[in-house]
């Protein structure tokens, strides 16, 4: 118990996390490729054609996991932010900034694929569906976070301000989702729901699960790669960077 605690704090320092991240990246990158290949194979070749939606439904193998990930990532950012604000660990802020672009990417991917799916299903590129609207707002929240961090020069302040914003955001996300849902029912919006497939075949579920795992692995790969860059940028003057990382 106590040893694991010590290890955690050991790896909370950028100097020891940097090489660890470097060792982990290839594994996660390989996992991303394998899982994505398996997921796409199941999704595109094995899963049966949907009776109502035809072949077009297959886009959900990207759309649904991307939507999941965009929400997960925001929660993880909030988790790191809370950790960073309460324990004043530098690595937390770096992790939060490293995750944000991937989160924004998934939110965008979810919107894009949603719109592609919507055209044949709803007959329009954009429908003011509650899920789609919430996703758009989540995308705005990511953009706000990235813009705030980019606008602040001092990295310590950028980390703290970003952490506060991420926490404010994560408290607001459920309220926003709820309000958009409420708004949607009031206005009797589109009644077709994307994920409410009447009976999902097991293979469909398997495909989605595989893709979700692939996206997880991708997120971790990208976050670790980015955090390594951030560590180097911030610690450029410190001794360990000069000694080890520049080899």
């Amino acid at each position: 118990m106590s040893t694991s605690l010590i290890n955690w704090f050991k790896f909370a320092s950028p100097a020891s996390f940097y090489p660890l991240a470097g060792r982990l990246i290839p594994w996660f990158a390989a996992a991303t490729l394998l899982l994505a290949a398996a997921g796409l194979w199941v999704g595109l070749a094995v899963a049966p054609t949907d009776a109502q939606q035809g072949e077009g439904y297959r886009i959900i193998f990207v759309h649904v996991p991307a939507s999941w990930m965009s929400m997960f990532i925001y929660c993880i950012m909030a988790f790191w932010s809370a950790l960073g604000l309460s324990f004043n660990t530098r690595l937390s802020g770096m992790m939060t900034s490293a995750l944000a672009p991937t989160g924004a990417l998934f939110a965008f991917l979810s919107l894009w694929t949603g719109s592609l799916w919507g055209k044949p299903m709803w007959g329009a590129w954009w429908v003011w569906d509650a899920r789609l609207t919430s996703q758009l707002i989540l995308f705005f929240l990511y953009l706000g976070f990235i813009a705030l961090q980019a606008a602040i020069d001092d990295p310590r302040r950028a980390d703290k301000a970003g952490a506060i914003l991420a926490l404010v955001g994560v408290v607001n996300v459920p309220i926003i989702y709820f309000s958009v849902q409420w708004w949607n029912t009031l206005h009797q919006g589109a009644s077709v729901s994307m994920t409410k497939a009447p009976s999902m075949a097991h293979t469909m579920l398997l495909g989605m699960l595989l893709m979700a795992l692939a996206f997880w692995a991708y997120t971790i790969t990208m976050a670790l790669t980015r955090v390594r860059c951030i560590i180097l940028e911030r610690e450029l003057t410190s001794e360990w960077v000069k000694k080890n990382a520049m080899e």
Binding site: F140, L143, G144, A147, L148, A151, I152, A161, L165, I175
Partner: peptide
């Protein structure tokens, strides 16, 4: 959050408007 930050006016709108939605 945007106090004393470059381009704080526009940034403020970007941060705040989504939170005004509810």
């Amino acid at each position: 959050l945007t106090l004393g930050v470059r381009g704080s006016g526009v940034l403020l709108s970007l941060l705040i408007l989504p939170l005004y939605i509810p």
